[in-house]
Design a protein around this nucleic acid. Structure first.
Lengths: 213, 213
DNA sequence: GTCTATAGCTGGATAGAC
DNA sequence: GTCTATCCAGCTATAGAC
């Protein structure tokens, strides 16, 4: 179906070819990340990318049907890394497993994930590429990760339906200001713990007043 | 110096020519706003712009030396509107002139300013245009407007050096989430009052504990 | 000041030989 | 699967006639 030439040998020739193909695809995507880190997300071009992996730009179309498909592969990688980043185990917390400590760690993790790679941040959360829409499968993964935040909030005794949006606003606000107004610095990073305390105090007070009106 | 042809009449010929020129410049900038609203900030082109005002793209260079100069004029207009938006008089507050009420109004104003025109928001706060740097004069105006927020915070009995960055993070976080995840909706707009209460409670508690440690 | 003509550059993508 | 050759489209900006 994909037009890959297939030999006549029995020893899983398709497997070998597919493996080789997969390696090249990964190499292309890795090179794409390099380029967007160097020149910005929007400046990625097929010509540059081809040159970086040692082929002509036109040859890339043997691996990806379009430039957007490359963005999609990058988006997918970013989504997987994001899920891994936001998965917090009891081990990670080292002793203090209070809901507040977990929220704090989640906030630090999110902040680090976003600010450590602003090109990735733009691709995944800011929709900077016109006409790029992530494929349904990758989107599904994103929804799954948001579910982690919901569970965490429930475990903290808070009401996700009421507080989750406020929480995400605080997270993205810290990240956004850091990237826009103090790139490479720590001016907003230093406020993370304060922000978590602020949010937690407000949300628990609200949950408490609902229980004892 | 600018090569404008100058007649020999005494009745302020330069004034009339300059006025006409200014009108055309304003018309061009207004058309630029229209196009940006229709097709997005990054999609503004000199061709489209020329067509919209009824001239060839090349003729625009008689009025603006470059495309960036047009962006700069737009940025300047946005900055002036922003200053006007964020200036709150006692009249605006209608009765409740408490610091908290003023913060709340400031937040609503900021939110409305940003979400009502996302192209303008991108131009002014997100630096989406590569190689565009606003001219020093317009930047000066921006600093001035931030001063308003400082004063407001002082008047509220809070410490700007400590709380202003947290405040701006909350504002931009609400805006960012609204634009990215519920464009045209009110999902985060509805959280403004909660967010202000949250911030105010936290900041005043901190100010209080410093006074009575 | 406005036009035509054009330079000069970037980009994505396809056709077909090998 | 990779190449050459090519198409087609978009863009900013300049030169020079009128």
């Amino acid at each position: 179906m994909s037009g890959i030439p297939n030999g006549n040998r029995d020893e899983a020739p398709e497997g070998r070819v597919a493996l080789r193909r997969k390696r090249t695809e990964d190499e292309i995507v890795a090179a794409a990340w390099d380029l967007v880190h160097e020149h910005g997300l929007g400046s990625l071009s097929m010509r540059d990318l081809g040159e970086r992996v040692g082929m002509k730009a036109q040859s890339l179309y043997s691996y990806f049907a379009s430039k957007n498909d490359i963005y999609d592969a990058m988006f997918r990688e970013g989504q997987i890394a994001f899920a891994a980043t936001m998965t917090i185990t009891p081990d990670d917390l080292g002793g203090d497993e209070s809901p507040q400590a977990e929220l704090r760690m989640a906030c630090h993790r999110f902040f680090e994930y976003c600010t450590s790679d602003t090109a990735r941040y733009q691709l995944m959360f800011q929709r900077v590429i016109p006409d790029f829409v992530p494929s349904p499968q990758t989107y599904e993964l994103a929804v799954e990760t948001l579910g982690l935040a919901r569970e965490r909030m429930l475990a903290a005794g808070l009401d996700p339906d009421r507080d989750l949006d406020l929480w995400t606003a605080i997270l993205t606000g810290l990240v956004d200001q850091q990237i826009s107004n103090d790139p490479g610095g720590t001016r907003w990073e230093r406020l993370i713990d304060d922000a978590v305390d602020m949010f937690f105090a407000f949300a628990t007070a609200r949950a408490g007043s609902r229980r004892n009106p």
